[in-house]
Design a protein around this nucleic acid. Sequence first.
RNA 1: CGGGAAGUAGCUCAACUUGGUAGAGCGUCCGUUUCGGGUGCGGAAGGCCGCAGGUUCAAAUCCUGUCUUCCCGACCA
Length: 485
Amino acid sequence: MTKTENIEAQEKDLDHGESLLAKLALEAELADYSPVKGCMVIRPYGYAIWEQIQSSLDKMIKETGHENAYFPLLIPESFLKKEAEHVEGFAPECAVVTYGGGKELEEKLVIRPTSETIINHMFSKWIHSYRDLPLLLNQWANIVRWEMKTRLFLRTTEFLWQEGHTAHATFEEANEETIKMLGVYKTLSEEYLAVPVIDGIKTESQRFAGAVTTYCIEGLMKDGKALQMGTSHYLGQNFAKAFDTKFQDQNSQLQYVHQTSWGVSTRLIGAVIMTHNDEKGLKLPPKIAPIQIVIVPIYKEAHEKDLVLNKCKEILRNLKSDFRVKIDDREQYTPGWKFNHWEVKGVPIRLNLGPKDIANNVVEVVRRDTNQKIKSVPQDGLKQYLMNLSTEIQETLFTQAKEFLNRNTFTVINENEFSTKIPSGGFLVGFWCENSVCEEILKQKYKATIRCIPFKVPVDQMKEEGYCIVCNKTSKQNVVFAKAY
RNA sequence: CGGGAAGUAGCUCAACUUGGUAGAGCGUCCGUUUCGGGUGCGGAAGGCCGCAGGUUCAAAUCCUGUCUUCCCGACCA
């Protein structure tokens, strides 16, 4: 076994995946534990990553015609109960406020696990005519879902997310919206986070409580486990019927609206951590890195200090308009220490600048994605050089992750093959008879689930028809199985 | 929520078995030396031993409860 394979084998060890995540997140100062179980503090560097993701996504959400709004944290308990499947799905994970103002409340208030109910309540007030449609809203919010088992960023009791909620006149329009927003998520994940995903449809058992169809994007983490990174739901008229959200169409007929909801959360940060890292620490994609370039000044003598720092500042001024760039001019740390520090934090590009470089009118450039050190990059044209490099790093991180995903996506033709492959992780693609019993068997026996019915089967040369890997019935349905977070 | 482990200085841990007022390394601070991959040396500061009870003349140490974290299982973005 070569060294690389060995590392990958270790990384794929499912037992180590979790502690690796915590180690990376804590060491890079992204987050810290709170005194309350399952809650975490997002530290400034971690929050800055979230802000980058937020601003990119917020822009895309607005470009697709949505407006931001804010709905309250507390929801009357009765609202949750209006949609049968919804209450059944969420009741176990709801936190409920029973006291306020020093006395027991007449009606308990649920801390939102998601906002479909309160939003429908308002929609039913706001929507009267087809002229009010489509109604396209989004909110950035925190939500609470009580969790048994928690993991930094991947599963916490409280987390930050964005939830889009839309109402449309027709199924076609709503369904189109659902797929469009899933596409936005895919773009965000692949082009910004550099995390490749498989997009598809959830099976009935994995569907959002209250939805007609749930679409999702699924990523594959370095430890071989799948991660649901975003979902987009076609809600049909389920909530509209529960909340009486109706409109008059062009023919003066009263109709229930067709709705969608879609969300991604701070879990995306977990996905980045678990996709881009090495033994040194994080590797942040340039597009979401809070600091894209760090400049480390190197000097010995006092007279060199001014020379070097002035040159660093000059370079900073030059780069500032196009990069999030910082000079680490702290005196108490040596350059070597700083190199390690910024590698742990995943800064994509580092510039080392000392007297020798200044004499030769060059800088030393170190890229985090490959750890490659490029000596003697001319200072003339540096900005353009770094813009190209930044693009290249973004692409390389994606390519590395994509190759990992491809390398760990296998076809399986029967349960025996499934059972030998599933322990080492990865996506397994095989036929499924569409019976939830077979799905449940795999879950019980192997703790693996159907991640999705992919839009596009992620392996080449897959047959059109085969046999369900569990019951052996003829099937035309290829699905993606995996152990998941 | 069941099974296992852990919680002592900012961090990693020792001391606990056999109760007697707490120790190392790293980090921090001061000085000096260094600075192109976690500098070297000298000095100093820093702890209600997770929290709450109990046993005892005396508790980090024994007992009970509780909270948090980690690992393994049942539910979930």
